[in-house]
Design a protein around this nucleic acid. Structure first.
Lengths: 335, 335
DNA sequence: ACCACTCATGGAAACGATTCCATCATGATT
DNA sequence: AATCATGATGGAATCGTTTCCATGAGTGGT
């Protein structure tokens, strides 16, 4: 049942109960100066009436909304969920509510959500941007305080990102060290940072550089599976695969199993992002762990802290060796 | 860099630009009646100035905030992430923003978050409640419009829950059908519904009812692992385990592997909640799938739709047979 | 004794929207 | 032709808070 919706008590009633003016109540409650006895009276009245200041009134007057917005492509993806958890954890310590929206990696939906947040007078936003940087111009002009997380698409917006370059290099070096020469990269659209890092890494290690070895997929599970299956079927010469994220890794494992490709005997597999199931998988997956939670936390710190904001924070990745990579034996026979 | 924070345009400026009064602008923009030419002028002016009504002003006047609050124990848990996704998906179609908070299954933190939401004048809340129902009395008295998801702790609050009773019964029947007689239930604290359903199910199937076969854990991974390991070590007579949720199932798989208990040869394992990795696991896990997303969606519908609200919606679960359950062979030898 | 200065205090304006109500014009009915 | 009903329209009040400014009291210095 919805109750009788008892009216909330306002600052005016507190003022009356305390026998002072509303201005004084406001001042005392926000830590301004007042005489000790007045403070006492106000606090007593406020406590007695269980007064809760209305954020609406405050924000309207102050011309800024307390909370922070958070835009992620998919809250169901463990990586973004952990990122969101970091944001929430930091925001909680500041006492700020966070309003979340899922973009589905669709720039159009993203723009809609930004509009909705502006309508709410949110002036602080943490986003995993979907499209390219151009579409952010209007939002920035509107005075929105933006921090990018996980991806950096504009240099004039503070960003917190994993060290893609080092992560990719570590993975490729590890595979090369095991003797692999034809290594494929299973990438999600928009991972241009990692793609160039991958091409640079293979080149710098003297491996053959072949753009065909970079396979792209959209963010959905279906698209990832199709890309993974296509890769394993059409490139029988690759002996190692680097997956650019956990859903791509999942798709690779599934596709390999379906196509009867043994991991790591037939092909070695290494995945970006450490997820709980990586250890449960058979074989347990070797991964490049990303500090998803830290990324969120740091991004929230950046957007909540008032001070100067460094242009970009890069957080280290870490190679976690499990059992999905082995020495190169022989190229698989052609299909 | 933060721009010059260009001031947002107000309804007053639109009125001036259109040559009409503010009341007329408000009326036109919210679909009220007006003469065709006035409508035209107002729409033109609003579009030209790119006018966005301030939700703050509107909500202050209307005495209610548009958005809905969402309280989950842990956004990192796939189940709650999918539930949240359902809520977000429904809320998006209503154009309502969602403010999310994680309770960590801690009633105290939950109470804090409720307070924060009330401060924001949120009057609609979807919650996976942490403690018992008593602590919700103040919130309900404050006129909050609450819908419970996943757990029902009060009969006077509409709730959307999975069919625990049927799910547990299906699982136990399945295991009993394979010949298992001593079945353990690995439960999270607070899953009293499922525990009683479990005891009822075992009793109704003529299996020995033994409260020691119900092992409790807190929500954390560590606690779950400890409980799972303890169960497998101390009860060498159990031949099948039902895990009450995905983190418990994960812990069971890990503990079994660590203790060299083979699944399903030594013990059969069945888990509540179907997660993507259940299929990647070795062996692939047989699960009781729960419609997490639907639960969230339906809960959001309930809280957003104005009409009468049914007391409880129960959503069906589904047995997905994979490879983690086998026929009972022989009790494991005592440790 | 007077002035200058500090300090606590409360009234009132402001924030941006909605909505009540009065006003006015127009068309219809008697 | 006078009256009534209808509908469009804008002024002003309102929501709950913060903050500017004026007022008045008290203090210390010359």
């Amino acid at each position: 049942m919805s109750g009788p919706a008892q009216r909330r008590i306002t600052i005016k009633e507190v003022a009356e109960a305390a026998g002072v003016g509303v201005a004084t109540v406001s001042r005392v409650l926000s830590g301004g100066s007042a005489s000790p006895e007045t403070r006492e009276k106000v606090f007593a009245a406020a406590a007695r009436l269980d007064y809760r200041p209305s954020a609406l009134g405050r924000n309207l007057r102050r011309q800024r909304t307390g909370g922070v917005g958070l835009l992620v492509p998919d809250i169901t993806d463990s990586f973004y969920a952990r990122l969101a958890d970091g944001v929430l954890s930091c925001a909680r310590s500041y006492g700020e509510p966070v309003t979340i929206g899922v973009t589905g990696d669709d720039p159009e939906r993203e723009a809609e959500l930004i509009g909705a947040l502006i309508e709410q007078s949110m002036d602080r936003l943490i986003a995993v941007p979907s499209g390219d940087g151009d579409m952010w111009a209007p939002a920035l002009r509107a005075g929105l305080n933006v921090v990018f997380a996980d991806r950096r698409v504009r240099t004039d917006v503070p960003s917190v990102v994993p060290d893609d370059r080092a992560g990719v290099l570590t993975a490729v070096e590890y595979l090369a060290g095991l003797g692999h020469r034809r290594i494929a990269f299973l990438a999600r659209h928009g991972q241009s940072q990692r793609v160039t890092a991958f091409l640079d890494a293979t080149a710098s290690l003297g491996l053959p550089v072949d753009r065909d070895l970079v396979v792209h997929a959209r963010a959905s599970r279906d698209s990832a599976y199709a890309a993974a299956a296509g890769l394993l079927q059409n490139h029988s010469d690759v002996t190692a695969v680097l997956a650019g994220g956990n859903v791509l890794g999942e798709a690779a494992v599934l596709a390999a199993r379906e196509l009867d490709v043994r991991v790591p005997r037939d092909v070695s597999l290494i995945m970006f992002d450490d997820v709980p199931w990586a250890e449960l998988c058979s074989p347990p997956l070797t991964v490049i762990a990303q500090p998803a939670q830290d990324i969120g936390y740091r991004a929230a710190e950046l957007v909540l802290r008032q001070g100067r904001r460094p242009p970009t924070v890069t957080l280290p990745t870490r190679l976690v060796v499990r059992a999905s990579c082995g020495p190169r034996v022989a190229p698989r026979r052609s299909s």
